Simulated scan of single mutants.
Amino acid sequence: MNPALKWMPLVVSIALVATGCARDGYYHDRNIDYVDAEPSAPLVLPESRDMARYGNAMPVPEASGDFVPSDEGFSAPRPDEVARSRLRDYVERRDIGEDSWLVVNAQPNTIWPQLEDFARRQGLNVTASDPSRGILETQQARLSVRPGLLRGSSVVRCEQAGRAYADCLSSLSNYLGGQSQTASTASALASQRMANEPERVYLDRHNDEWLLVLGVGPELAWAELGYQLESNFNQGNRELLLESDAASRDFLVEYLPRDERERGFFSGFFGPDAEKMTRRLRLVLVPSGSDRTLVRVSNEGERELSSDDTREFLERVASLLR
Score class of each variant (00 low, 15 high):
Q139N: 08
Q181G: 02
G25H: 06
A57Y: 04
Y227M: 07
R133W: 02
L169P: 02
Y27G: 13
A119Q: 07
S173G: 15
A57G: 08
D80Q: 07
D80C: 13
N125T: 15
S288G: 09
Q114W: 03
G148C: 14
M277D: 12
R49T: 14
E137S: 11
S171T: 03
G123D: 06
D130F: 03
L256F: 06
R142E: 14
N174H: 15
A274L: 02
E92W: 04
V145P: 12
S100K: 06
L169K: 03
Y175F: 15
P198R: 12
D24M: 09
D250P: 00
S244R: 15
A164C: 09
M277K: 10
Q139V: 02
Y255I: 01
S244E: 12
F251K: 09
C168A: 15
G152K: 10
P39I: 01
L229R: 04
R151I: 07
L285Y: 04
V82L: 09
V201Y: 02
D66N: 07
P9V: 12
P61Q: 05
D250S: 13
R311T: 01
A52Y: 07
E304I: 05
E38A: 05
S290M: 04
T138I: 04
P39M: 01
L16Q: 12
M51H: 10
R311P: 02
E275Q: 12
